[in-house]
Design a protein around this nucleic acid. Structure first.
Lengths: 226, 226
DNA sequence: ATATTGTACGGTGTATACACCATACAGTTT
DNA sequence: AAACTGTATGGTGTATACACCGTACAATAT
């Protein structure tokens, strides 16, 4: 009963289950405050409760689920306050990451930005918002890698997962957010590849602040009260 | 065999075990790269492997231990690079936390800073570096609480645990670091309590940067090569 | 009718058994 | 002698059984 799924989960079952649940949460297939029971998740993926528990610990770390001792587990709710909290942190850390990435001399990996930009443009042209964000995340991951700071990378990877939930909702309600992101991302990639550290940092901070304020409207509409 | 320890662990065993291991790692009782086996830890605290596994996941999240699949678990090594990475992140996030804390109107909780300052002075006067840092951590925790940003709090709580290992080593080699921290901390508390947001942020960033550079010497001596 | 207590059940928390991988070492072969 | 293969062992990874808490609902008493 557990054999078939083991293949899909690429060796590490907890991380595999976490990745699958992550996607479901980020893209709204699992609604905010949806109840998760360990046994149900275990049955769904054909594994036992042990790795599921570890997967849920990972999701808790990234703020995607809430746990109450002996009460249960829920998909973390979304709120305007939470959104503001995340962006308050992101604006600082993404700025540093872009700055440090620009200072990297790893020209070989910097070339990957060109390919990513093409993928972004393709997804943008197709109007595929979901794919757009997935590629955008890979661009961020590349930036974090170039910054050569494992601690920063760890913090941002965690923040990004939360942020992506809001970004996807924002896109759903205001598709032009993809247009804005598209334009600005190109400028940032340029600065990073060109080694303009200060510019990369300022651009990143400015742009994140801009998108933050732009998205607040859509977010407030849905979660203003909470 | 497991009953007696349960009391010490205050209800949640994984968190309890994690807290105990944390202290041992932070204060050097468990040396960098020391091997940890789940069974040994479980036996030591009189619990089973299940909660120990979860405790080790928590420590991994905070960068205190490293895990290699099916290979083992080790206390995370210390290095100058890691130290720089942590402070690069801390300087940004602590600044924001101080700024936001100063903007808080929770005058009731702000009064706690006075008591903490007294405790700091007492520990400083006694030359009790370990106690000094423990109180300092509570001051940071209060600042994070006041910032009213759960995301920021989560990121900083994690960072602080790593940072404390280096801070304790720095103090061991350069006890005057406690003097410096003592003086500067008082100024920051003043700014936060007084509601001077911009000043609190600038002071914090400046001071963390100063201590960072000051400590680099002691850290480099021990871990320069790694 | 309301309040209180008993009870059943869903679900997490922990313990334990077993599977399986990684390493080291010994034995065999070339 | 060196390389390779087989095997034993230590330790993590997973499955499963059971303990225990929290909630809801029903029954009884006031």
């Amino acid at each position: 009963m557990n054999r078939p799924l083991r293949q899909d989960l690429s060796a590490a079952i907890p991380e595999g289950v976490a990745a699958l649940l992550e996607k479901e949460i980020i893209f709204g297939e699992l609604a905010p405050m949806a109840r998760l029971t360990e046994e149900e998740v275990a049955a769904r993926y054909g594994v036992s409760r042990s790795p599921v528990r570890e997967a849920l610990r990972l999701l808790e770390r990234d703020g995607l689920v809430l746990r109450a001792a002996r009460r249960g587990i829920w998909v973390a709710p979304l709120s305007l306050k939470d959104f503001d909290e995340i962006y308050t942190c992101r604006i600082e850390l993404e700025g540093v990451a872009a700055e440090q990435a620009a200072m990297s001399s790893d020209t070989e990996r910097k070339k990957q930005f060109a390919g990513l930009l093409e993928e972004l443009r393709a997804a943008h042209a197709r109007g595929d918002g979901r794919e757009f964000f997935m590629v955008d995340v890979r661009g961020s991951a590349l930036t974090y890698d170039l910054s050569d700071n494992r601690t920063l990378k760890r913090l941002l990877a965690s923040l990004d997962k939360q942020a992506l939930r809001y970004r996807f909702i924002g896109y759903t309600h205001n598709p032009e957010i993809v247009d804005i992101t598209m334009t600005h991302t190109a400028a940032i990639y340029d600065a990073i590849v060109g080694g303009q550290a200060e510019r990369a940092k300022e651009l990143t901070e400015h742009i994140i602040h801009y998108i933050w304020q732009f998205m607040r409207g859509a977010i407030a509409e849905n979660f203003g009260k909470e």
